[in-house]
Amino acid sequence: MSTPRTPLTPRALGIEQARERLSELIVVDVRTPGEYASGHLPGALNVPLDQLERALPALKESTAEPLMVCRSGARSEKACLLLAEHGVTAATLTGGTLAWAAGGHELDRPAGGARATWAMERQVRFTAGMLVLAGLGLGLLHPAWQLLSAGIAGGLVFSALTDTCGMAAILGRLPHNRPRAADLDATLAALSAR
């Protein structure tokens, strides 16, 4: 009888620990390409969280430990748990790029016209706010439009209770939040080379 496999527990690295070990880690930024373009850790490779499974073979073959990074640490923690399910030990950067920048460390930005976009959390707040205002405004014309505002409010409550976000999943599919196939393939090739 076999015993169930226990998933590997992700390790959290503080800013200074990560800075000291940066050259020996594979830094993987799991934010959207637009967020990545707004500033990332030096040498970080961009593999959006929803594309992380495509990078599993390269991460499994690598001898360097992956350091998963996002804006604040929530998505990188999810990335570490996903990797752990597949037998890859990874660390997460405590506080993400926000903490890195707040610690006085530089963030790299891609050269050559990569366009920075708002962080996903900010995109969600903006979209939710606009939809609520639209529902309230259109509700003056016909009360049924107020259901739009109620639906968004219910979605936000559900999102908080389940720690998931359907609106972020939808917004993540917009063109400015999607990696170009060539960019992701180049990133995966760079991962394989490490």
Rank of each mutant, 00 (worst) to 15 (best):
T162S: 13
L131K: 00
V28F: 13
W145C: 02
R5D: 06
G151H: 04
V132K: 07
G155T: 09
A111G: 11
A169Q: 14
N177K: 09
D163L: 12
L191S: 05
L161Y: 14
A74M: 14
P66R: 10
L148S: 05
W100G: 00
T117L: 03
L82Q: 10
L52W: 08
I26S: 05
K78L: 10
L98A: 10
P33M: 00
A74V: 15
G139E: 08
G103N: 08
L138F: 14
G95T: 09
T9E: 13
K78I: 12
V88C: 08
S62V: 02
G129E: 09
Q17A: 04
Y36C: 01
L8K: 02
A119D: 09
G34S: 08
G104W: 15
H86D: 13
E77S: 09
P33H: 04
E77T: 07
S192A: 14
R54V: 02
G154T: 13
H176S: 13
G14P: 03
R122M: 08
E16G: 05
A101T: 06
A182D: 05
A168L: 15
A114W: 06
A18Y: 00
E24Q: 14
E77C: 08
E106A: 11
L56K: 07
P110T: 03
A181P: 06
E53I: 14
A99I: 02
G139S: 08
P42N: 01
